[in-house]
């Protein structure tokens, strides 16, 4: 029997009377799964992740984390089991990389506890994992976007979560660091059984790493399934509003997604950009 670590039923959300961002959305994520949420800009991916992490409350519907309603989790206990890597990182956070990563221990410490040697060791390991050890003494505002991204992932690892939620963690990374982070996430899953839920724009990374993909468009589920099921040329072309070619990789027959430029016969049907929607 599969054990579901994250369950959502009938999630709906709208900001201040605008058209709904999410509409009656269901999902279930199994323990140890690599679950990826994909969809065009403004489809509600980020809002969905924030709802799942309990950072905002839904208008309707319910989220259960580890078989317990989100609303009945004390914040600190939840943070011991669930870590979040947000899309927007603090620009002016006045701490060093080492201090920031160590803050991942906060949910495991009492109010007046001070981080001990074991906490520091975990922080060092997390920094090593994400390749930021040499930046340890730098302040966060002195880093590039990609470096900051890796620091925040290190902080989430330092939290030792069972569930890790990430919002486009690879969007500002070069290919080497993209693969490094994605490999790290799959290693976390393989070695520690961490469940990974990730919002991504990169359909090819989704194909390479995701166990299951949830494709959403305008706040509704289009399809949830394996990469081969979800990533088909016709469905993606309709959803994203441009011509998309899907063929098969030499690597194990995984789908490979290529948006076609006009010179190769592609054309774009821009969906009416939903004004005032936040995030993607």
């Amino acid at each position: 029997m599969t054990s579901w670590v994250v369950t959502a039923r009938g999630l709906s959300l709208s900001y201040n009377g605008r058209p709904p961002v999410l509409c009656d959305l269901d999902l279930r994520v199994a323990s140890g799964e690599f679950f990826m949420i994909i969809g065009p800009n403004g489809s509600g991916k980020t809002s969905l992740l924030r709802l799942l992490a309990g950072l905002i409350a839904p208008e309707a519907g319910q989220v259960e984390i580890l078989a317990k309603p989100l609303t009945s989790w004390p914040r600190r206990h939840l943070a011991q089991r669930l870590a979040v890597v947000p899309q927007q990182l603090p620009q002016d956070f006045p701490f060093t990389v080492a201090e920031t990563v160590l803050m991942g221990r906060a949910p495991h410490l009492g109010l007046l506890d001070v981080e001990g040697e074991s906490d520091r060791e975990l922080a060092r390991a997390a920094m090593h994992f994400t390749d930021v050890t040499r930046l340890a003494d730098r302040r966060l505002d002195q880093l590039s976007e990609g470096e900051r991204q890796r620091v925040v992932i290190a902080r989430a690892l330092c939290q030792e979560p069972e569930i890790l939620m990430l919002d486009e963690p690879t969007s500002s990374l070069d290919p080497a660091h993209q693969i490094q982070i994605m490999d790290l996430l799959s290693r976390l899953r393989a070695e520690r059984g961490v469940t990974v839920i990730m919002v991504s724009h990169d359909l090819n990374l989704a194909a390479l790493y995701g166990d299951r993909l949830l494709l959403i468009d305008r706040g509704r589920t289009v399809l949830c399934g394996s990469p081969a099921e979800v990533l088909t040329a016709e469905r993606l072309s309709v959803c994203y509003g441009c011509t998309i070619l899907v063929d098969t990789h030499g690597l194990g027959g995984l789908p490979r997604v290529t948006p076609l430029p006009a010179s190769y016969g592609g054309h774009v049907v821009p969906a009416e950009e939903p004004s005032g929607r936040r995030g993607s």
Binding site: R50, A53, G54, L55, P74, R75, R76, H77, L78, A79, Q80, A83, V84, P86, Q88, P90, F93, P94, F95, M103, G104, A106, P107, L109, L111, L112, Q159
Partner: peptide, 23 residues
Amino acid sequence: TLARPMNLLLAGRESAAALGVNV
């Protein structure tokens, strides 16, 4: 006693909440 939550709040309310602060 609330000094560490204050550190976490510097990263923003949602970040602090994700690290277990009852903001």
